[in-house]
Nucleic acid binder design. Structure first.
Lengths: 216, 216
DNA sequence: GTAACACCGGAGCGTTTCGCTCCGCAACTG
DNA sequence: CAGTTGCGGAGCGAAACGCTCCGGTGTTAC
């Protein structure tokens, strides 16, 4: 029961959460000092755990992928196809999956990351397929549409900015307002409305940003 | 007929458009050099027109407010309440109204800005009220919900990031995918689905970020 | 009780990037 | 062809960056 280990682990958790928050607010320019400060941890402690900024971000990506996959599995475990899909989407959005967008292309993608990412794609495909077969999801929506929707809603301009300005008093209200937007978007996924414009999006939109350009 | 004036005006337009683009990609950290470079204009030319970075951003805010108000007036001119509202929302989102979010609180709000902002609120209120009275908008959606939706969708993570990475080849596909998400969200605004979660959002969420904290 | 130790926070290093100034030069004008 | 206008960008001091390193503090072993 060494208190030392407890503190270390709590610091680690705080660091990862702070990194996600700061990343959401400042994007690629998120500074190590800002992350440490938000976590209430010294810079030295951060660098004892992660030798470099990139290593911290890679760890963060892995954890996000894990969360995505766990949420998808939980969704598949739900007997109701719509509740399962909707719960997955809500979970990913509120977790802040969109925060990682800014670092796409800025960090090296490890083998472990791409493996977990592939698994995530399969799980989401299964969720979407089941929803389609049950007729609870509008037919012209693809799995990639859902991915992009999660990324689009996964960052909240209002929440991020209020946090940056230190208006913590408004955060609960902003979170509530955000949940209403999520509900609106989810309702737009239900069957009934007319067809979506244009052709379904190409997968390269989601994967292409993480790898180097093929040419040029 | 003087070519000089023509070039100057074209440069000014390019600067403003470039500023909006760079602001969307880099947020608050958008650098003057990056804006000038994207506009294909020298830094000197930028500073001849705008004495300071803040002045450029203030001008940008004014133009965005003008666009908002003109789009709202066009929406009200549409005899179809739903088409008017939907056109307004689509227009604001594609114009990139959300790009200005990052500079809220970072620049001084002029009298002219708040006047135009107030007028924008009234126009949107009128649009929403007319849609409610015609029953084409779900009853539990407020004007503020629409404002926040525009801000949320007004920035496209995918488009911004692809542009930053120079993947211009993927931009049309990304724009198409984005339009699908907008269509989904708009469908979620139609009447029919169940009630939205929580209470309607408070107006301070939208206005509070532009002014200094009242206390502390 | 106290010496040895582990681990924390943050000052400070060199480097990069920032907002902005200033000036040489090209392009119109009369 | 001299005068004028307005362009592009090198370069300034200041600020912020990623990261190193060390004094101080609380924990452990005896």
């Amino acid at each position: 029961m060494s208190t030392r280990k407890d503190i270390a682990e709590r610091n680690d958790r705080a660091l990862l959460q702070a990194a996600r928050d700061v990343l959401a607010e400042d994007g690629v320019h998120a500074s190590v000092a800002a992350i440490a400060a938000r976590a209430g941890v010294g810079i030295g402690s951060l660098y004892r755990r992660y030798q470099t900024k990139e290593e911290l971000f890679q760890r963060l990506s892995l954890l996000s992928l894990d969360h995505w996959n766990e949420a998808a599995e939980q969704g598949l475990a739900d007997p109701d196809p719509w509740a399962g899909l909707a719960g997955f989407v809500r979970g990913c959005i509120e977790f802040g999956q969109g925060s990682l967008g800014p670092i796409a292309g800025a960090i090296e993608v490890t083998e472990e990351m791409s493996t977990k990412s592939r698994r995530g794609d399969e799980l989401l495909d299964a969720l979407v397929r089941r929803a389609h077969e049950s007729g609870v999801l509008r037919a012209d929506v693809t799995a990639l549409d859902i991915s992009l929707l999660i990324e689009q809603l996964g960052r909240s301009p209002v929440v991020d900015q209020l946090r940056k300005q230190g208006r913590d008093d408004l955060l609960p209200a902003a979170a509530g307002a955000r949940r209403r937007l999520i509900a609106i978007a989810l309702d737009g996924l239900r069957p009934g409305p007319g067809p979506l414009p244009g052709a379904p999006p190409d997968e390269i939109l989601f994967t292409g940003r993480w790898t180097d350009r093929p040419d040029a």
